[in-house]
């Protein structure tokens, strides 16, 4: 099987300091990869390099495109990369305000990606937006409300709907549950898990919350100081951590 995403030797430096160094991994279709580590360990740098928001200094990010098979995303032209960003890829920001247009109605937010790829039938766009609001448990009656009138959890669900509406194959998530209270977190995780399984999505989830990866991720990558120090199946890494830092990380979680 061809990996959906094949990352080789990805390196990003900020001057003399390291963002992330020599990261390599494969992601297969339908798989969810968790990236954990403490603040400043390079998780977000890595995610932004993968998603094309930052230009890495070295390495390859080979994505299995629908039309041309595996291609290095970093050598693609900007229009191709943008097209990928609107169709096959999705990026869920930690803060929904970064991923939503706050002054545009919920329906417009969901419809934007559709219109960006050429949907010009109002009725069809609206129908699809209504469908997706339903799937993320937002009442259809709120389709014309602006996200600023939504609660934090609803905003995050709306952001997910907006991203998944074009049926992407790869979703990048940066702390998708950050800043939400625990019961809302639990519902959101449940929802994401359902969507990922039903749509057969591949996802890369960056978080410092081990509970999130325990629920969502098939495999886990632990990062420290820009390097990957441990990888493995989620349960294996969390239940039998090998690297000293991973042991520290796992034992730092409060058991209630």
């Amino acid at each position: 099987m061809t990996p959906l995403l094949n990352v080789q030797g990805l390196t990003k430096r900020y001057g003399g300091r390291i963002g992330c160094a020599d990261v390599s991994f494969q992601l297969y279709p339908g798989e969810v990869l968790g990236i954990v580590g403490e603040s400043g360990s390079g998780k977000s740098t890595l995610l932004n390099c993968l998603a094309g928001h930052l230009a890495p200094d070295a390495g390859q990010v080979i994505f299995d495109t629908r039309s041309d098979g595996p291609r290095d995303v970093l050598t693609m032209s900007e229009p191709e990369r943008r097209m990928l960003g609107r169709t096959d890829w999705a990026f869920v920001h930690q803060n929904p305000r970064d991923g939503l247009r706050m002054r545009i109605s919920a329906g417009g937010n969901v419809g934007e990606r559709l219109m960006a790829v050429g949907a010009h039938h109002y009725g069809a766009i609206r129908e699809k937006a209504t469908d997706w609001l339903g799937r993320v448990e937002i009442s259809a009656a709120r389709i014309d409300d602006r996200p600023s009138a939504f609660s934090g959890g609803m905003q995050q669900r709306l952001q997910i709907a907006r991203n998944l509406v074009t049926g992407p194959r790869l979703v990048f998530m940066d702390e998708p549950t950050g800043g939400l209270d625990v019961s809302v977190q639990a519902r959101l995780l449940d929802l994401i898990r359902g969507l990922v399984r039903r749509m057969g999505l591949s996802a890369i989830v960056v978080t410092h919350d081990l509970a999130v990866v325990r629920l969502l991720a098939d495999r886990l990558m632990v990062m420290k100081d820009g390097h990957v120090i441990e990888t493995g199946l989620t349960d294996q890494v969390l239940d039998d951590p090998q690297a000293p830092y991973t042991q520290l990380l796992v034992s730092s979680v409060l058991q209630v």
Partner: peptide, 18 residues
């Protein structure tokens, strides 16, 4: 430059919605 004009239709969408 990239002919990325989806946003323009979002404005028209908002008009119709409202």
């Amino acid at each position: 430059a990239l002919e990325d004009y989806g946003l323009m239709h979002v404005k028209l969408y908002e008009d119709i919605a409202r």
